[in-house]
């Protein structure tokens, strides 16, 4: 059924390249934003596992 629909796509070989570009773009944007993250909040986030002052046990 969907076989016929999709087999009619032209230049299906471009798919991998498009996906690579998609990822590369995604990666660059992510790195850009990660570098811009606020230093204080990053520090706070990274200390979450160590922040257990309210456990009632010794």
């Amino acid at each position: 059924m969907f076989q016929n629909v999709l087999s009619s796509i032209e230049n299906v070989g471009l798919l991998p390249s498009i996906t690579f570009l998609f990822f590369f773009g995604f990666f660059i944007v992510m790195v850009f934003f990660v570098l811009r993250m606020d230093k204080k909040s990053v520090k706070k986030m990274s200390e979450i596992p160590l922040d257990e002052p309210h456990s009632m046990n010794p």
Binding site: F27, M30, V31, V34, L35, V42, K43, S46, P49, L50
Partner: peptide, 15 residues
Amino acid sequence: RPVYSYRLSIIHFWS
């Protein structure tokens, strides 16, 4: 002690 770089862990995850 906290993880070396929290920023790196975000990049690590998504990639």
